[in-house]
Design a binder for these strands. Sequence first.
RNA 1: GACCCCGUAGCUCAGCCGGAUAGAGCAGCCGCCUUCUAAGCGGCAGGUCGCAGGUUCGAAUCCUGCCGGGGUCGCCA
Length: 590
Amino acid sequence: MNVFSEFHARIGAILRGIAADGRLPGDLDLARFTVEPPREAAHGDLATNAAMVYARDAKPHFPNPRQLATEICYALAADADVEQAEVAGPGFINIRLAPKVFETVLRSAIEAGVDYGKGAPTGEKINVEYVSANPTGPMHVGHGRGAVFGDALANLLAFAGADVTREYYINDAGAQVDVLARSAHLRYREALGENIGEIPEGLYPGDYLKPVGAALAREFGRSLLGRPESEWLGDLRGKAIDAMMAMIREDLAALNIEHQVFFSERSLHEKHDGVSEIDRQLAGLEAKGLIYQGRLPPPKGQLPDGWEDREQTLFRSTGFGDDVDRPLKKSDGGYTYFASDIAYHKSKIDRGFLSMIDVWGADHGGYVKRMAAAVKALSDGKATLDVRLCQLVKLVRGGVEVKMSKRGGTFVTLREVVDEVGVDAVRFMMLFRKNDATLEFDLARVIEQSKDNPVFYVQYAHARGKSIFRQAATVFPGADLSGATLAKADLGLLTDSGELELIRLIAQFPRQIDAAAQAREPHRLAFYLHELASAFHSHWNRGKDSPQLRFVNEESGDLSRARLALVFCLTTVLASGLSVLGVTAPDEMR
RNA sequence: GACCCCGUAGCUCAGCCGGAUAGAGCAGCCGCCUUCUAAGCGGCAGGUCGCAGGUUCGAAUCCUGCCGGGGUCGCCA
């Protein structure tokens, strides 16, 4: 039960009633007002701005918002679940709910267990594409951020009720994978005993290609030595890409990330009966008159090296909100990345996804408009693309920036960070920040595994909840402490302000899920869990000075049961929220 | 030159579709361990929400223009 959406509906009904009397317009947009927790707990349990939002519409019959608010309060007073409704400030309505309502919420949360806060299936198919790192080397920390963000977002949307598909686009078709193949060939020669010296400029120098070279040596022996590139490039490229993807999948597995679909860019270039998928989709756009031969104005400011005015094949993206039309073919006649991306997104549309989310690094921000334009054009405006950009990660060790250079010895891979600080810390820290703000990730600090790291703070709250249950089992040997039994506890015994605060926070969980999913911002959930943990630790500590507030009360089984019911909900919400973030909820942390 | 993101306490950052006296953590200062786990809790102090306009009952939030930081700018992905 979500009390906020529940009361949004009830107040909506009241407004419709007033409209039926002709005192409000009949076509009110009921999505405009909100029901939310008041800033001050002293104001009550719920607050709504409804009277102020509709003040202008109400003017003929209610000269000022407070008068409309009074009318709404009058109707609310008749609701058995409302203890008090009053007008405050310029026209807010503060509602105090009958204690019974929160008992109901708590009870329904216990009964729902891990399903508490979960949205009903909406049937909406959403495709979330994330990571999509080039298969040319191990993932770095920046990739990791996009990976964790995309994964948590996918979890969140699924939890909120969407039908989510997690997808990875393999960029296995560009010049970079040819470079990869040449680099692998060099390592192959090395594996056969040749002294290759310094890795030449323009090839990938990383040690991670050594095992690939060794495997090639085992497979091909000396047969590829001294042969022209054209004889081995294709073979080695395929094998090197496979090896890189295996490595990337391992890196992802270390982060508990698993995609359902791996989509190969190369497959879009493959010809079937002389026609590739890209050919087909561009022909479709051409038939709509959206492709033409033309010239682009030179970029302002300093011209890039080698820029020349030239006629080329362009997509009319300006017709769909972009700033300039975009090229589809390179000067060598091959397709641009944008062209294959058009075919790729068309594939998603054809697979039934009208809602697409792409998670990209911030350095791809310049491509958002053209891709969104392409999706509009491809779907005749029926599909939407929401690109979430993840800002760069600034890796710091003890306050000193770690330079990320593939050539230098200072390159830190994602895997190294995960192995060093653990998957939970990496995931939580990356989600404890807005995706579009730069992230400072301090290795030294995270390694400390101290209270500076909020993940332990939240996890500890869960462990503390479980610890209370262990304690209860000792004090009340043989007692039935299952959820089913606790749901029958006399929850009216929970009257302390700290307990009520915890109940209010628990009641907010479904709303937090909704809000975070709608905004597509998993970090909101991380902050909510931190707040919930904080309230719990705080209340727990009050038991030190006031033993009668402790959750386990030897004197009273009834009181203990009620409080254990609260702790049960608390640990359930913590575990559930952490699981959406992909972070474990340990039972103990000794 | 254009486009995108950011600018909130000394530092790192929240602030939900405009809402009531702008919040948290760290750092600083003062307290709290015979406890259901001190990996914790309480309190104090700390702010021209980058600047200037605009929109309205109301702006950190929306709009415009500046300033500062980052990113991107036909063929790389």
